[in-house]
């Protein structure tokens, strides 16, 4: 199950939901709010999600992990709202009979979630400025609508005819 949560995450309770007598390994990942990004001092973050589609896409990733790896249970939760330095932003937990599959599946779920789930992060910097991450455009204007994007654009986010 993949969930979006507007309230603080409690890893103990989340972990408890994965308990399984067949499990010999539990791997969890916690993403914490860091005080620095690309050389800039970060003061706080806002996360925003398109919750309906975020949970649907997150659950697709979880189904893929179950197909690819020999695991018993897997879950993920991502926060929305205003977070402070050190807060828990995202949690992924996997249990399996053996550690290899648990590590691999946990890595898969967090990597895919970061790349595919419609969640956005606004960083607030110590110098008083703010920025939506991955949305910088280097002075693009409306007159170039539909033109070539930044060379940095990740291909999977592009809205070209034929892209899903």
């Amino acid at each position: 199950m993949f969930k979006i949560s507007s309230v603080p995450l409690e890893p103990g309770a989340l972990n408890g939901a994965l308990l399984d007598a067949r499990a010999g390994a539990c791997v969890t990942f916690e993403g914490w709010v860091r005080n620095e990004n690309e050389g800039r001092a970060v003061r706080a973050l806002d996360y925003e999600a398109f919750a309906e589609l975020a949970e649907r896409e997150g659950n697709r990733i979880i189904a893929e992990a179950r197909e690819k790896f020999q695991i018993l249970a897997v879950a993920g939760v991502h926060r929305t709202g205003a977070l402070q330095i050190g807060d828990l932003a995202v949690w992924v937990g996997v249990v399996a009979a053996h550690r290899g599959a648990a590590f691999d599946a946990c890595r898969y779920v967090i990597d895919e979630a970061k790349a595919r789930v419609p969640i956005w992060k606004k960083e607030h910097y110590a110098d008083g400025t703010s920025e939506w991450i991955n949305c910088a455009t280097r002075g693009e204007h409306a007159s170039s609508a539909g033109g070539p994007g930044s060379p940095n654009s990740p291909h999977r986010t592009g809205m070209r005819p034929g892209s899903p």
């Binding site: 999600a49 995202v90 969640i119 654009s153």
Partner: peptide, 8 residues
């Protein structure tokens, strides 16, 4: 419309 995502 979904801007570039940035979860995690």
């Amino acid at each position: 419309f979904i801007p570039p995502v940035a979860g995690g």
